[in-house]
Computed example of a mutant assay.
Amino acid sequence: MKNTVILGALTVAGLAAGAASAATLDDVKARGNLNCGVSTGLTGFSAPDANGVWQGFDVAVCRAVAAAVLGDPMAVEFVSTTGQTRFTALASGEIDMLARNTTWTFSRDNDLKFEFVGVNYYDGQGFMIPKELGVSSAKELDGATVCIQTGTTTELNLADFFRVNNINYEPVPIETNAEAQQQYLAGACDVYTTDASGLAATRASFETPGDHVILPEIISKEPLGPLVRHGDNEWGDIARWTLNALIAAEEYGVTSANIEELSSAPTDNPEINRLLGTEGELGAMIGLEADWAKKAIMANGNYGEIFEKTIGENTPIGLSRGLNAQWTEGGLMYSPPFR
């Protein structure tokens, strides 16, 4: 079992430029494991199971990258981070990549000197309240106390929403989802606001989920995805194309059940052949073995398989694909060509 570290609060400013190494791939190979930043625990997305093994939708991205680079999806050291500590962890080099419900924004991309490698979940901010409050719209929350995680886009969106609607609120600052859950259930706040997927995950962990309602308003765009430091394009390419491999595999019908057969010899589909390394030299272009994408897909399945077994409609989280469906099914999930 890998040890889990919760980082203390540090200052991000000034760390990014000094910590960015142009040899992250070499460092990961020499170390023999990937240091991946995740949440402090969010059911379905990133949380340790009863045996202490990290599982979830975001965890699967970490394991796919570890499989692509090291050939072992379990060669990951998971580092728990909060909304306040996650960027310091990445900028300082404590972690090689961050894979936890983090929104791609202009300032994070540019001012903080990070590189988002794609979107693995298109989300938006919502509100959860106890059903007994009898509120049917977020616009009826004038004067409410609101649990909000500090250091997040959620905090800024909340202020904007209440300002635009000319209503007031009293913030109840919290650091982690566990703290938010505790405070919310204890009645310390009337409302909990975060990404709608996070609200669904949190509600699923309650003893009586049906006693709580997620209001209909979605007040923001929250494209969530993994990120790395600026300054190491090769490592960014590896993380980006590993995520793309999971998405492309679903589109092309490559699954955990048929991947061995499809990769045993070239198929009639050259895109599948290039993806799985039986044709072309894509692996060499990013410093990996020819079957790097095959290993990444085998770690947890393709994007759709990962979604369905961690947060999908048949799980306690119960999320529909929505915007996260493949582009061929009316969603936004789309990988550039493997060629």
Rank of each mutant, 00 (worst) to 15 (best):
Gly231Ser: 00
Arg229Lys: 02
Gly231Arg: 03
Glu217Ile: 09
Trp235Ser: 06
Asp232Lys: 03
Val213Trp: 12
Ala196Ile: 11
Gly231Leu: 08
Ala204Ile: 07
Thr208Ala: 14
Glu217Val: 11
His212Glu: 10
Ile219Thr: 12
His230Asp: 13
Gly231Cys: 02
Pro216Leu: 09
Ala201Thr: 03
Gly210Trp: 09
Thr194Ile: 07
Glu217Asn: 14
Tyr192Gln: 02
Gly231Ala: 01
Ser197Tyr: 01
Ile219His: 11
Cys189Val: 04
Ser220Leu: 01
Ser197Asp: 05
Arg229Gln: 02
Val213Cys: 10
Glu207Gln: 15
Asp211Arg: 09
Val213Ala: 14
His212Lys: 10
Thr194Gln: 09
Pro209Tyr: 05
Asp190Tyr: 08
Glu207Met: 13
Pro216Ala: 08
Asp211Asn: 12
Asn233Ala: 15
His230Tyr: 10
Ile214Ala: 11
Pro223Val: 04
Ser205His: 09
Lys221Ser: 14
Thr194Arg: 00
Val191Pro: 03
Val228Leu: 00
Leu215His: 13
Ile218Val: 15
Thr194Glu: 09
Gly231Phe: 04
Arg203Pro: 06
Asp232Asn: 02
Ala201Lys: 03
Val213His: 13
Leu227Glu: 08
Ile214Asp: 10
Pro216Asp: 08
Asp195Trp: 01
Leu215Phe: 13
Ala204Lys: 03
Ile219Gln: 10
Glu217Ser: 13
Asp232Thr: 00
Ile219Ser: 10
Ala200Pro: 06
Asp195Leu: 06
Leu227Tyr: 04
Val213Pro: 06
Tyr192Ala: 07
Ser205Gln: 12
Asp195Gln: 04
Leu199Gln: 01
Glu222His: 09
Glu207Ile: 11
Gly198Val: 05
Ile218Phe: 13
Tyr192Asn: 05
Val191Gln: 02
Leu224Met: 10
Asn233Phe: 15
Leu215Cys: 12
Tyr192Thr: 04
Asp190Val: 02
Ala204Glu: 00
Ala204Phe: 01
Ala196Cys: 09
His212Tyr: 15
Arg229Leu: 01
Val213Phe: 12
Thr193Cys: 03
Glu207Arg: 13
Ala200Tyr: 11
Ala200Gln: 09
Asp190Leu: 06
Lys221Ala: 14
Ala204Asn: 02
Ser205Asp: 00
Gly210Ile: 10
Leu215Arg: 14
Gly198Trp: 04
Pro209Ala: 05
Ala204Asp: 06
Ala201Ser: 11
Gly231Trp: 07
Val228Asn: 02
Arg229Glu: 04
Thr202Ser: 04
Ile214Leu: 11
Asp190Phe: 05
Asp232Ala: 03
Gly210Phe: 11
Leu215Ile: 13
Arg203Cys: 05
Trp235Ala: 00
Leu215Pro: 13
Asp195Met: 08
Gly198Ala: 00
Glu217Thr: 11
Glu222Trp: 06
Leu215Asn: 12
Thr193His: 03
Leu215Gln: 14
Glu217Met: 10
Ser220Trp: 08
Gly225Gln: 06
Lys221Val: 13
Cys189Thr: 01
Gly198Tyr: 04
Ala201Glu: 07
Arg229Ile: 04
Ala204Pro: 02
Ser220Ala: 09
Val228Ile: 00
Glu234Asp: 14
Val228Ala: 00
Leu227Asn: 10
Lys221Gln: 13
Phe206Ala: 05
Gly231Gln: 02
His212Met: 12
Pro226Lys: 03
Glu207His: 13
Val191Trp: 01
Phe206Thr: 00
Ser220Glu: 02
